[in-house]
Design a protein around this nucleic acid. Structure first.
Length: 312
DNA sequence: TAAATCCTGTCA
DNA sequence: TGACAGGATTTA
C-alpha cells in the first residue's frame, strides 16, 4: 500500500517528465477524476507543461505552467506507470497522459479508490491536503514538538499516527514498524507518552521511513514503482505481516490483533502497554485481553491542571 | 476521537 | 462463499 516511502519513490522517478507537456489526455474511467467534469479536466490539462512535481504526505502534486495543480493520490491500489505508446495498456487503466517526450503516464487502480483532481490557481485544495499534519522529516518537527502534540491529543497512539492531520505520510505498515522500533504498544494513550519516549518515537519513525525509501518502498501485493519494479523493503520489516514469526529482538512470536480498525502487529514482550511508574497495570496484560473496565473518571476539565507532576 | 464506508482480488 | 485488506472521507 503506498505510504510515504512508496509515493516518494514514485515522485523521484517522475523527475523524468519534468518540463514535458501533456499533449493528450485520455480518461477511460470518469469516476477517477474527482471534483471536476472529466471533459473540463481533459480540456484544462492538455497543453500544460509540468513545471514541478512534489509530494505532500501521500499526495503527488504536479505544478503546471498555467498555475494549476494536478493532484494525484494512489490510495491503496493505485499505480502510476510510465510506458511507451507501443506497450499494451495494463489492466484497470483509468487515465492516460500522453507526454511530449513520447511516453505515456498511465494511472491504473484495481480498487478505484485513488484518482486525480485538478485545482485551478486560487482553487480549493482537498481538505486532506489543507489540514495535513507536519512531514516526518520537517526540521520543525522536533522531539519536544512531537511530545507536545502527543500531550494535547487523546486516544491511542496508533490512531494518532495513522491520522494524516496529526502527522503526514504514515500508514499501517510504517506505524507498526515505528512503534516496534520505539517499543511502544499501539494502544498506549498519546497523553501518557513522555518526552523521552516521544523522542524515541520520532527517531524510530524517521529511521523506518529512511530505510524504506532507500529500498524504494515495500511491495506486498500491488505496489510497483513508475517503471513497474516492486519495492525491496519487505525483508526489512520486523513485525508487519510477520505474525507467528519470532521477534528479531527477543524471539517472542509476533502477534496480530486489531487497533483503530486496522490489522496491527507487535512483539508482545518488547511492546508493553505502559511503563510509567505509579501506574502499574495488572501484571501481564496481553493485547487480546478484553479491557476489564474503563475505570476512567471524567476527564479534568474547566480549569483543571493538566500536567502537574511530570513537566518535561 | 473512532467507526463505517467505498472497492475488488485474494485467501481460508 | 465470506472475511479481509486498507487511506481518506463522512458520520456519529
Amino acid at each position: 500500500m503506498p505510504e510515504l516511502p512508496e509515493v516518494e519513490t514514485v515522485r523521484r522517478a517522475l523527475d523524468e517528465v519534468l518540463g514535458q507537456t501533456v499533449v493528450l489526455v485520455t480518461v477511460i474511467s470518469p469516476s477517477m477524476v474527482r471534483g471536476i467534469d472529466p471533459e473540463a479536466f481533459v480540456r484544462s490539462l492538455e497543453g500544460e507543461r509540468i513545471e514541478e512535481i512534489r509530494r505532500r504526505g501521500k499526495y503527488l502534486l504536479f505544478s503546471l505552467s498555467s498555475g494549476a495543480t494536478l493532484i494525484g493520490h494512489l490510495m491503496m491500489a493505485g499505480r502510476l506507470l510510465l510506458k511507451d505508446p507501443g506497450q499494451a495498456l495494463p489492466p484497470h487503466t483509468h487515465v492516460i497522459l500522453s507526454l511530449s517526450g513520447g511516453r505515456e503516464l498511465v494511472y491504473q487502480d484495481l480498487r478505484h479508490f485513488g484518482g486525480f483532481r485538478l485545482v485551478e490557481p486560487g482553487g480549493t485544495l482537498p481538505m486532506g491536503l489543507v489540514r495535513m499534519g507536519p512531514e516526518p522529516f520537517d526540521p520543525a518537527l522536533t522531539a519536544p514538538v512531537l511530545a507536545r502534540m502527543l500531550r494535547e491529543r487523546h486516544g491511542k497512539i496508533k490512531g494518532a499516527l495513522l491520522d494524516q492531520h496529526f502527522i503526514a505520510g504514515l500508514g499501517n505498515i510504517y506505524v507498526d514498524e515505528a512503534l516496534f522500533e520505539a517499543r511502544i504498544h499501539p494502544e498506549t494513550g498519546t497523553d501518557s507518552i513522555g518526552s523521552a519516549r516521544a523522542a524515541e518515537l520520532l527517531s524510530a519513525i524517521q529511521s523506518v521511513l529512511e530505510r524504506a525509501i532507500s529500498h524504494r518502498g515495500t511491495t506486498f501485493g500491488t505496489y510497483m514503482d513508475l517503471n513497474g519494479r516492486p519495492g525491496e523493503n519487505a525483508p526489512a520489516l520486523k513485525v508487519f505481516r510477520r505474525e507467528g514469526k519470532p521477534c528479531p529482538r527477543c524471539g517472542t512470536p509476533i502477534v496480530k490483533f486489531r487497533v483503530a480498525g486496522r490489522g496491527t502487529h507487535i512483539c508482545p514482550r518488547c511492546q508493553v502497554k505502559s511503563r510509567r511508574r505509579g501506574f502499574s497495570r495488572r501484571p501481564s496484560s496481553s493485547p487480546t485481553d478484553p479491557k476489564p473496565k474503563p475505570e476512567r473518571t471524567s476527564r479534568v476539565s474547566g480549569g483543571g491542571i493538566r500536567s502537574r507532576v511530570k513537566s518535561s
